[in-house]
Design a protein around this nucleic acid. Sequence first.
DNA 1: GTCTATAGACCGATAGAC
DNA 2: GTCTATCGGTCTATAGAC
Lengths: 220, 220
Amino acid sequence: MTSLADPPTSTPSAPARADSSAKRSFRAQMHQAREDAIVSSVNRLLAEKGFDAMTVDEVAADVGIAKASLYKHFPSKEDLAAAAMVKVLRRAQAFLDTLPAQGAPLEQLQAVARWTMQVQLAGEMPSLPSENSSLRGALAENRDYMDGLLDISERLGQWIEAAQAEGALNPKMPPIAVLYTLYARACDPVLGFLKGSEQFTDEAIIEMVLSSCFEGLRAR
Amino acid sequence: MTSLADPPTSTPSAPARADSSAKRSFRAQMHQAREDAIVSSVNRLLAEKGFDAMTVDEVAADVGIAKASLYKHFPSKEDLAAAAMVKVLRRAQAFLDTLPAQGAPLEQLQAVARWTMQVQLAGEMPSLPSENSSLRGALAENRDYMDGLLDISERLGQWIEAAQAEGALNPKMPPIAVLYTLYARACDPVLGFLKGSEQFTDEAIIEMVLSSCFEGLRAR
DNA sequence: GTCTATAGACCGATAGAC
DNA sequence: GTCTATCGGTCTATAGAC
């Protein structure tokens, strides 16, 4: 009875509007809006407390809906978190799309690192437990997540190899190590530490970490 | 920690090892041995699962004692973790003591970073949740922990400033940022990622991360 | 009438505390 | 070994939109 796939002819009484403003049924819009609100809340809560400390009651309260309604959208807490992770991957992909295709590889990589740190300082970078937890498994099963992650790694990998080929990046470093090092900037605790010291602006913090990442601590 | 049957001693963390025929009662020795075993187990479990995922039942089972006995030694899970943290601080202080006092500051700092990464790869670096959690507060209240952390920060700070003064470290970087960056190496997820790739030895991983930390990703 | 969201009680398991 | 709190997840009954 429950047809998840929405046929285009859902509302019989609704006259087909001009295609310019016409869209899915009112219900579907509400559904989508609620789902966006859920993912947005989860994203923030995940960023500020982490997966284990986040409770689904909390999410429901934050969104302003009943917990049972949450489970109409996502069958488990893991799926909730996975949806948030997929969202940031989509955001990252969208950011990559904005980068000029012919830019210098090194600058592309720096731009990406800068972006991930901005997202983290904005409190919008979900922190997933690096090792343990049921999340690992759930994410590994999630097609959207894995595809997105692979796509991003692929694109960064191209730039890394190009930057090494043209002598901009240290060629002695395995590309995989460079990739992981960049990913690690997204959850670098140094950002939070420096922010907590209240001595620097967000911009200054990002430039410092970016510098230490690419230029190193040693004097040049 | 509340010392119930502790003889009046001036120094809280006495060696207590060499005195086989010493004054300490048999009970006290047993007590100490059990406590060492507990802290050791907590240290390992904390390193491999983190504070939230670690249960005290697990700790009791791992040590091989009753859960109730745990509470004879530590009044709460937080104190358990704090004891493990204090232990690694003590190890770190002991390591700092082994460094030649007249060594080049930069090399001292590199040696410290290398040591923390070795400890982490050995699965002996307890990972504490950087932000949230009740642990933060408990640690901030713990005198031994705060004193040890301050002492280490002090000594590293001296080297950092000395290294900058002699032009070995980038003088544009605030010392506090350098300090946090070095601390962050102790919990750098890149080590685990690279180890998981099974392409490198532990030594190679450490040298790569050490290089990226001090030399930077960019070609020199 | 039919569908769906809501509020809130409710259950089972687990973990910390004692 | 027991108590108690919490949390993930479910269920029911009511209300309202179509």
